[in-house]
Amino acid sequence: MSGRIRVDRAVCDHHGQCTYTAATLFWFDGDGELAHVPELTGEQFALARDAAAACPVRAIRIED
């Protein structure tokens, strides 16, 4: 199973809740912009969904 993380950059306010929830999938780059692993493997889905749920502005979408 594989999938993708989609982040709506127009909505993201850089709260960083996703980085606390899933630091292996989300992080802030050297410019302070949110970066993420674009392709998910099976075992990463649950963690990615937890991070999306933690986003206070719902800027993260997980696609199968």
Rank of each mutant, 00 (worst) to 15 (best):
D29K: 05
A48G: 10
C18P: 03
A23T: 09
G16L: 05
L25F: 11
D8P: 04
T41V: 11
P38S: 14
V7Q: 07
R49T: 11
D8Q: 08
I60K: 08
C55N: 06
C12N: 06
E33W: 13
T21F: 08
Y20S: 14
G42T: 14
A48K: 10
H15L: 02
C12S: 07
C55M: 05
Y20A: 13
A10T: 14
L34S: 01
G16Y: 03
Q44H: 07
C55P: 04
D8S: 10
P56Q: 02
D64W: 09
Q17N: 15
D13M: 13
A52S: 12
I60H: 06
A35T: 01
A10H: 12
F26A: 06
I5V: 15
Q44M: 15
C18D: 03
A59Y: 01
A52F: 03
L25K: 08
E63C: 04
D64R: 14
G3N: 04
A51R: 01
R4G: 00
F45I: 03
F45K: 00
F26W: 10
A53E: 15
C55R: 05
I5G: 03
W27I: 02
I62Y: 07
G32L: 11
G32W: 10
H14A: 14
P38W: 08
A54T: 07
E33C: 06
T41Y: 09
R49L: 14
A10R: 12
